[in-house]
Nucleic acid binder design. Structure first.
Lengths: 364, 364
DNA sequence: CTGTTAGCGCTTTCAT
DNA sequence: ATGAAAGCGCTAACAG
C-alpha cells in the first residue's frame, strides 16, 4: 500500500493536531519552535509528502497545467513543451500532457479530460484557432488558456507565436532577391495548421508585390515519407522554365523535399534552392545548412506558460504576442541558376552558385 | 468560478440523490431507465464533468502516470513520450511530464512531486539505473515504475530498452567489415547516460574480438554546438594513419560530428565514415543517409506504459525487456579509403567508395 | 432500485 | 500558539 502515512499519522507522531502539522508545512501561521521541530522530525522520519489531491480538493485548485499539442514527434512542439515544462517547474507546477495526433476532433475530448483533472489552465496548439468550439467553451467556462503557434485572426485569444505571414513574406523576398522567379510553395495540410495557411499567404503577398505569378500550392502531408513527396513533386521540376526555388511551410517537410529533389537528380542548392520554416536544431547540422525562418521555439513555450499564469492571476487582456524570428537565408538557399533556354535538365548552371551566407535579423 | 456545478447540483436538477448520479455515471449499479434519463439530461444541460480530484481522493488512485526524462529536445525521448501518451490515452490515463535537463540530482525532486500527485505509476529514464537511491526508494514504497532506454545490469528493475552493447558490437563489426581499422568512438557523457557507457563497451568488445587496438574514447556533450565538437576533434583526424571511421553514441552527436568533420575539409563518407545510434527520423532525410542503429522509439514508450500497467495490476517480475533494433550500415558508413602512405591529407582515396546499402536485420 | 451517510487527506475558520 | 471541526467532490457500504 503506497503511502499509508497521512497528515494524521504525522500529527500522532509529533503529538499535536493535524492543523498544527498543516501550519508547519505551509507556514500558514506561527508555531512554537518546539512543536515545529517535533513535526519536522516526524515528517522526516515517516517520509511524509502531503497529498496534492487532498490539498486540491480543499482549495479547489491544482498545481497542474494542461497541454494539448498535435504531436511530440515534430521537434517544434517538443521544443516548446520543453520550455513550458521548465517554466512550469519554476512555478512549482507540473504539465499534464496530451496529443491530438493531428486529429482536430480529439481536441474537444482531450480538453475535457484535462478539465476533469481541474488543471489550473491550458496551453494548446489547435488546428484552427478562429473557428473552434472547444476554445469558445473554455471562454464560456472562464478557464484560462494560451495558444502557442496559433495566430488567431479574428477571435480575441491569448496566444504566443511569430508573425507567420510577415516571416514568410520576408523569406519569399529573400528568394526573389537571389534572382528566383518561379517559386513553388509546398504546404503542410491547411486543415490542421493555420500556420501553414498564413505562411502561404505571406508567399502570395510577396509574389504579388513583386508582380510575379505564384505557382499553385502543393499541399503535402509532412508525416509522409520521401517517396510520397517525390511522387508529388514528379513533373513539377522538369522543363526549361521549371521552378528554381521551393519554400516549404515547415522544416521537416523541407528536409524531406530536399531528399526527394536530390533523388530526382537535381542538386540543392545549385539546381534548386529550398527553404523551410521553424528553425529546428537539426537544420543547422545538415550540409549545406537549411535555409529557414528561425523561431525561438523553447521561449515560445516559456512565454506561453508565463502568460497563462498572468491569466490565472486575473489578467484580462487576450492578445496575440509576436516573438521575433530570424531569417536564415543561407545554405540551401542560393542564387537562382541560369536555366538553359531549351535543354530541359541535367546540365548545371554556368555560375558556380557561391554559398550565400547573408542572415537577416529579427523583423519583430 | 470555473465549475461550480458538482454532483450535488446534478442530483438536485434530476430530483434524485447524489448516489444515484454516481451510479448512473459509473454504471456501478442498475438504475431505472426513467431516473437514468433524468440524470443524463441534467448532466448534459449543466455540462457536468465529475471531478477527478474528488474521485481520486475517495478511491486513493489517480488516472495519471508520471514521466521523468532527461529532455524533450532529444527526438529519441520526445518520440518515446509520444508512444507513452498514446498508450496511456488508450487506457484512459494522462501523463504528468517532467524533465531533468540532464541534472541527475533533479530526479529525486521530480519523483517527489510526481508521487505527491499520487500518480498510479512512473516511467523514467535516469542517469544511472544501477546505483540510484531514487529508484531504491520507489521500490521501498512499492510504487510501480518502468525504465525506458536504461539497461540496468545488476539491480532487478523493470525496463524497456535495446541490447545496447550488442547493437554497438554489431555496428562496430559493420565498420570492420567495411575495411576500417582505426575507429574512433565518441560518446555522450557517461555520467548522464548508461546507454553511452554500454555502447562504448560494445565497441570495445568488438575491437578486442578483432584483435584491434581501440582508440581512447572521446566524451563529448551532445548538446554543445558544432564548433565545440570541431575543437575536440581537431588533431585527431590528421596524419597518415588517422581514423577512417567514427562511431557516435547517439544520432544528434553524429550529425554534429559530420558537420564538424566536413568543416575540417574531409568528406563524409569518402574520407571518414560516421555512424550514430538511435535512428531518429531526420537521419533518413540527410544526404547521404545517416548510418545508425535504428530503435523502435515510439514502441519503446508504448511498451513501457503497457508494462507499467502490468505492474500496477500486480505483476511481480521486474525484467529487462529488449526490443529489436535494426542496423542501418549505409550512407555515411562506406568502405574505408586507402590512406596515402605518407601524404597526410587532402587527396581522396583511390577507390571511388561505392555507397554501401547493406542493412542488417534485427539481432533481437 | 434508491437514499443516507461516512469518510478519502487536506486547509481553514473558529474557539480556546 | 494550538485544537476541534467543518467541508471540498466524490464513491461505496449500508439501509430501506
Amino acid at each position: 500500500m503506497p503511502q499509508t502515512v497521512t497528515i494524521r499519522t504525522v500529527a500522532e507522531h509529533a503529538g499535536c493536531s493535524i492543523a498544527t502539522v498543516s501550519r508547519v508545512l505551509n507556514g500558514t501561521a506561527r508555531t512554537s519552535a518546539e512543536v515545529e521541530a517535533r513535526v519536522r522530525a516526524a515528517v522526516a522520519e515517516l517520509g511524509f509528502r502531503p497529498s496534492e489531491i487532498g490539498r486540491s480538493l480543499k482549495t479547489l485548485r491544482t498545481r497542474t497545467l494542461g497541454v494539448v499539442i498535435p504531436s511530440l514527434t515534430n521537434p517544434v512542439f517538443a521544443g516548446s513543451v520543453a520550455g513550458m515544462e521548465a517554466e512550469a517547474r519554476h512555478r512549482a507546477h507540473t504539465l499534464l500532457l496530451t496529443a491530438t495526433d493531428y486529429d482536430a476532433e480529439r481536441e474537444w475530448e482531450l480538453v475535457g479530460t484535462l478539465v476533469a483533472q481541474r488543471v489550473a489552465g491550458l496551453v494548446l496548439t489547435v488546428a484552427d484557432p478562429d473557428n473552434n468550439a472547444t476554445l469558445d467553451w473554455l471562454d464560456a467556462e472562464r478557464i484560462p488558456y494560451v495558444l502557442v503557434y496559433n495566430e488567431p485572426q479574428g477571435a480575441s485569444r491569448a496566444s504566443v507565436t511569430v508573425d507567420n505571414a510577415g516571416a514568410s513574406r520576408a523569406l519569399t523576398q529573400a528568394f526573389l532577391a537571389a534572382g528566383h522567379r518561379r517559386l513553388l510553395f509546398i504546404a503542410g495540410r491547411f486543415s490542421t495548421s493555420d500556420r501553414s495557411r498564413l505562411r502561404h499567404q505571406g508567399y502570395l503577398a510577396a509574389m504579388a508585390a513583386a508582380g510575379l505569378e505564384p505557382e499553385p500550392v502543393l499541399e503535402l502531408d509532412y508525416l509522409a515519407d520521401t517517396a510520397a513527396h517525390r511522387a508529388a513533386l514528379a513533373g513539377l521540376l522538369a522543363g526549361p522554365d521549371r521552378p528554381t526555388g521551393i519554400i516549404c511551410s515547415n522544416d521537416l517537410l523541407a528536409l524531406s523535399v530536399i531528399a526527394a529533389v536530390r533523388e530526382m537528380g537535381l542538386a540543392v542548392p545549385q539546381d534548386v534552392s529550398v527553404a523551410g520554416f521553424d528553425g529546428i536544431a537539426i537544420g543547422r547540422l545538415v550540409t549545406p545548412v537549411l535555409a529557414t525562418v528561425d523561431q525561438p521555439t523553447r521561449r515560445m513555450g516559456e512565454r506561453a506558460v508565463a502568460r497563462l499564469f498572468d491569466l490565472i492571476e486575473g489578467e484580462r487582456a487576450r492578445t496575440v504576442e509576436h516573438l521575433p524570428f530570424e531569417l536564415r537565408a543561407a545554405g540551401t538557399l542560393a542564387p537562382a541558376p541560369h536555366l538553359p533556354p531549351a535543354a530541359p535538365k541535367g546540365r548545371r548552371a554556368a555560375t558556380p552558385s557561391p554559398r550565400q551566407t547573408a542572415s537577416g535579423k529579427a523583423l519583430r
